[in-house]
Every structure is written in C-alpha cells, then in structure tokens.
Design a protein around this nucleic acid. Structure first.
Lengths: 347, 347
DNA sequence: GTGAAAGCGCTAACAT
DNA sequence: ATGTTAGCGCTTTCAC
C-alpha cells in the first residue's frame, strides 16, 4: 500500500515532486483548501495514493492543529468509564479528529501527569475525568487548550463541564429505600479527603444527599457512614463489619456500583440474602442487570455524557467562547437487591 | 505554576534568554546530555521552573522521538482489556514514556484506522490488539515503528508477539468438563469469518481445540458449534436456542467470559440452573469470581501480557533487532457453574 | 563547556 | 490557480 521512494516514509515534498507540483499545492489538497483545479487535485491525489503518503501529525502540530482530542481517565477497570469513551468516540466519527486516551491511576492523583502529557502532545482539546485536580490548575490549562471537565460539580468560567445530577440521583435512591420501609440505612464511601476537596466530586455530593435525606426523614441519629480507603478494594471488609453490628443496617448504599458489588459479595459471604439486607449502588453498569447480581442502581447515561463532552469541545474549536455547563439526569433502576426490610414481612 | 512571559506558553528560546544561555544549552539540560556544567544546569533548571516551560512533543517529534507509546484496543467494555492497560502502564512508570490508547471498534475492523492514527502521531512504539488486520500490513507498519502484536498466534519476522497459550487453555477446559462426566458439550463463538482469517485469532484456536478434544474423546458426532455474529450481544439468544434443543447439551463453553455471562443469563431465564447445564468461559475476568456469577473460566494473566508487551517495545527502542515471541500460560479456575451432568447424580 | 546554525515536515501569507 | 518562502520549536552536528 505504501511504495516508498528512497529513505523513510514519503513526505509532502516527495508527493509534490512526484506530481510535478509545489508543496503548497499538495498541502492545499490534503486540507482541501481553496484554490485547486480539479486537474491538479487529481494528479496530487494519485501521487499521494501511489506513494502511500501520510502527513506527519507532529509537523502539522507545529503550525497549528494536531486533529487529536485527548481524554484523561482514571481506572478503566470501572465499567462506567468505557461508556464515556464509547460516546466520545461515536461523536467523533465522521470528523477529522482522533481520540486518544491517557490512563491515570486515581490512587496517586495522577490526573495532573496524564493531563499534562496530553497538553504536551498538543492535543486540540482535552476532556478531564480526574476528580482530584485543582480548579486553578485546570483554568490554567484551559488557557492553552479547550477543556471539558467531566463529572465534577464545580463550575468555572474558563472551561465547560458535563455532570450528572448526583444529588437528585442519590436522593432518589434514598426515597426508594424509605418507600420500601427502610430506616437503618448505611452509606459506604471513600476516604473523606477524597470526597471533600470542595470541588464537587460525585461521591461527596452523594454522601451529602444521604445525610440530608436521613436528617429530613428524622433519622439523623441513625446516620451510619463507613469511610473506607480504596473503596472498591475495601468494600468487602467494610461491609462485613457493617453486617456484624448489633444494630445491623437493613440497607446499605454504596457510592457507586463497583463497591456495591463487593457489598453483595459480603452479604453472600455472611450467609445473608437480599431479604436480610438491601443493597444499592450507583452508575448502572451493565452487570448490575445480570440475574445473578440484580443490583438496584441509578443509571447514568455515560454514553451521552461522553458524547456531549466531545460536542462541547468541537463547539469550542468552532469558536464558542462562553462556558457551558451541562447536566444529565440519571434514572433509577430497581432490581431485586432492594426489598422491604424483614420486620415488615418482606413480600 | 506557569509564569508566561508574553504570548503563549514559553519556548526553549524563552528559557535560553531568561537563563542567559543558548538554546542548545537548554536542550542539553532537558535531555540531560553530555557537556553541561553544574552551574549552567542550575541556572537553566531555575529558568525552566520559573517560566513553567514544557517542551512541545510535536517539535521534538520532528527531530526524533515523541516519548509516546501507543496501544490500539478494541472494545474497552470487555474487562479483560483494562488489565492489559494496567500492566502496560505499570511497566512504563519510571520511564520517560507516556502511554496513549487509541480505541477501535472491533465490529468494523477499525484496527487499521486506530493503528494508522497512532503511527501518524509518530509514536515511538505500538502495541496492536486488533485481531483482524492483515499480517502484511503489520509488517509494513513495523518498518516504521517497533510493533508488538498482542493476542494473536501468527508469528512474523518483523515484529514481536505476546500471546496466551489458547490451545492448552481450551483443552484444559474441555478436560475439566470431560472429567465431570460431560459428553454433550456445545461451543459458542463468533462468526466464522471473524475467527478464520488464518492468523491465529484466539477464538479460532479455542474453537479448533474444542473440535480436537471432542474428536479425540470419540465424540465427533456430538460436536455442536453455534456461530453467532456479535458474540456477546447475540449469546443470550443463541444460548436459549441451544437450551431448547431436544438433545439439550449438558455443558456450554463460550469463546470468552462476556458471552459466557450471557449464557448464564439465558440459563437463568430458561428456568434452569448449573445442575441442568454447566457453563464455562475464558479470560478470568473479575466478575466471574462473584458469588452471584461463579463462572468457571481460564484465567489469562492480562497484566503480565500488557507488561511484557511494553518491555518488548522498550527492548526494541534500546536496539534489539531479533524478533521475540512470548507465550503466557493461562490457568483454570473452577467455580460452581460447572458441575457433573444431572444423569450422573450431580451431587 | 558553550553557542551558532542547519534542518525536521508541514502551513499560510504572499507573490505571481 | 499555482508557486515561493518564511517560519513553527526543537535536536544535533560542528566550530569555538
């Protein structure tokens, strides 16, 4: 497919020579800019084809765009994130842009590194999913390149945001449990430092909603929060501890689905069932719908969130300057992991 | 953190001026090349810090390396792939290289597009996970940049490969089922075109191993293969069909875990249990260990595979020229989804 | 040990 | 409509 002339891949120069035209002519053709006769376009295209020419993105980058959009993602192992990617990729198909992902270990607040790596590579736009980077730093980054912060509730003037309505979502879960008759509801989440930096991390919002809901239901004294470092990894043990309490909660709400799965595992390991303790998660990952799991959860439309993020970026590249802040509504998916508490005669 | 002088981010020129040295001096410092006095290094470092200078990767790319390794991955939704990424990322920490991921929809044989996008971006090395691209094309690519093909069994002189021993793995699953007493074992896999292009796609190897095992067990006439387009999406329906057969199989082996989960769902939906039909998958994804799932599977060490791929790339960058082909052994994980067939008195 | 200068492959402003 | 040319920010000889 690529027939090279001499050393290394063909350059724009090679194409120009082969087609008997100038470099700028070739450049115009590949960018389909104004001012090329059909005849010339024809010859150039043929030469490009024949030489298997591919423009070097680095070289283009020096003069402007790289046609690359970057997204920084923590923990690809959480099945919610690939949904964002699917949406983002879909929104990009048909455009000349390519999406590249920079993975970032959330544990070490590596978001900075990954985001910086993307910026260093001259991406034309970035999406950040890291919850734990400073707002000021993000503003600084967005002076260089359009930025969308995905999944955090703090708004800034400099960059766009896309979030799900975590407060409404978390309140909906609580209402669902109250409606079933639950009163002793525990909440399982990460370390306080991780959920409190003040810039509206989803887990922090959901935790606060839990508190509010309990208070307003007059259950302030039954508030029971398990802060566990490395939520997903620690959820199993933390849940076992909750289940061993003398006043065992009748329901456990986890800050998202991954730890919720661990809670379900703990319930099973403790020899209990959904009749003994109800479990709810958050995100609506696919496996929650499996009959063996059947986890009640709030579904977030990750695909839509990813898609919107890309669209906001494309708008910026098209010239928009006013910030936009999108909110996506989640919806409750009730499954058999939540049932009335036993005392009320579970079904 | 970044105090800019005038317009746009600082360049090497700005740093040179600020430190009162030449551009090449700065260049030497940032690459820590030979020939810089401690005094100069000191001043330059200070200036870099003060200006918040970051070398543009595009500019560096024009003269040589981009310090970027690319990996092309189909279907991030399959939890096996993030394992590869975790391994790859881990192997890269401490090196000056950054990993970028190019997602590729496997359905459209988009591997070409994603891989090409990476090459266009001048990555210093690529890992390809796409099973369906032509060997010849890969060889061509590897003339430009070191390439590791991950998860395919065809060997080439031009590039390195990392695979798991799929034949041994698939045979092990079959032996496990035979040992339990199963004879009517069905195999669920993708479309023949997807598994047969001749370059050793894992699914094709596993399918062949199934055939071989059945033949050698004298069960050639009970071979029962369901080829379903879009395995994961189609597995549920295909499984229901298998379960409705008059000579219903006592065991179903799926080509990997994702479709196996769908088979489990189908078993439940048909009102059956693991006592009626055993199910096995392949890959050893985490959820297979959940009590609600408990899927028997062959575990592949994805983390190790990702790590080795990166290491092979780094070796190439360090000068190795002879191709290397690594094989990683999978191991059987027995769970409650496989039991003796009912006729034998399943416990 | 340090700096001057020549490119790397493109794009875009400017001739023609 | 087409070609000429001046950089973009860096690395890398090669003099000093």
């Amino acid at each position: 497919m690529a027939a090279r002339g001499q050393a290394g891949p063909a350059t724009i120069e090679d194409v120009a020579r082969a087609a008997g035209v100038s470099r700028s002519a070739v450049s115009k053709v590949i960018r389909d800019a104004y001012g090329v006769s059909p005849a010339m376009r024809e010859r150039v295209t043929a030469a490009i084809e024949r030489l298997g020419y591919r423009p070097r993105v680095s070289a283009r980058g020096m003069r402007g765009k790289t046609f690359t959009l970057g997204i920084e993602i923590p923990d690809l192992a959480n099945p919610f994130y690939p949904l964002l990617l699917a949406g983002a990729t879909a929104a990009l198909s048909g455009t000349p842009y390519q999406l590249v992902i920079a993975p970032a270990d959330p544990a070490h607040s590596e978001g900075y590194r990954a985001l910086q790596a993307l910026v260093d590579r001259q991406v034309d736009g970035v999406i950040a999913v890291s919850p734990l980077v400073e707002q000021a730093w993000l503003s600084e980054v967005s002076a260089t390149v359009p930025l969308v912060m995905l999944g955090r509730h703090d708004r800034a003037e400099e960059y766009d945001t896309v979030v799900s309505d975590d407060e409404a979502g978390a309140l909906t879960v609580m209402r669902h449990l109250f409606d079933l008759g639950h009163r002793d509801i525990a909440h399982l989440t990460g370390e306080p430092e991780d959920s409190d930096p003040g810039f509206g991390v989803p887990q922090a919002i959901r935790l606060q909603a839990y508190r509010t809901a309990m208070q307003e239901a007059g259950l302030g004294d039954r508030i029971n929060i398990a802060h566990v470092p490395g939520v997903t990894a620690g959820a199993h043990r933390a849940a076992l501890r909750l289940l061993a309490e003398t006043e065992r909660p009748t329901a456990i709400v986890a800050c998202h689905d991954e730890p919720a799965l661990e809670v379900l595992r703990a319930v099973a390991d403790a020899g209990l069932t959904a009749d003994d303790v109800s479990v709810a998660g958050y995100d609506g990952i696919a496996i929650a719908g499996h009959p063996g799991i059947s986890l009640t959860t709030m579904r977030q439309d990750g695909e839509r969130m990813g898609r919107r993020s890309v669209e906001l970026l494309l708008e910026r590249l098209a010239g928009r300057t006013a910030p936009r802040h999108e909110v996506v509504e989640p919806d409750l998916v009730v499954r058999s992991s939540t049932r009335p508490p036993r005392a009320l005669g579970g079904r």
